[in-house]
């Protein structure tokens, strides 16, 4: 097992997921089999190979610095929120 119980809990924390006690074991198993599967990439020699982050070498795709009409206005956006006050999104006190 390369994925430990602590790993699962740490990844859940990073992912902002609350994992119940009984979920931990199966998750360990699943993540471990996936991680050992992707680890076969180590067989590949990639020395001196440039990574590909985007499929095509597009570059300098940008816009002029001009204000444009937006498809959704403040009212449309804030209407989606569970709680608002004074045109702002309301959340429990942030410590």
């Amino acid at each position: 097992m390369s994925i430990t119980r602590e790993d699962v809990l740490h990844l859940a924390e990073l992912s902002r997921l609350s994992i119940s006690e009984e979920e931990i074991e199966p998750l360990m198993k699943d993540l471990d089999s996936i991680v050992s599967y992707i680890s076969q990439l180590n067989e590949l020699d990639t020395d001196g190979v440039e990574p590909t982050y985007q499929c095509f070498d597009m570059q300098n795709v940008w816009r002029e610095d001009e204000i444009q009409e937006m498809e959704a206005k403040r009212e449309d956006l804030l209407a989606l929120a569970t709680e608002t006050e004074d045109n702002q999104v309301k959340v429990p006190k942030v410590l």
Partner: peptide, 26 residues
């Protein structure tokens, strides 16, 4: 300006919104 009066659907992080770079900022 009033709160959230300068906010685009991208800034609000709606699903499927994409960034478009401002040339002048570069």
């Amino acid at each position: 300006k009033e709160p959230n009066s300068c906010v685009s659907p991208f800034d609000y992080a709606l699903p499927g919104m994409l960034p478009v770079l401002n040339k002048e900022a570069v």
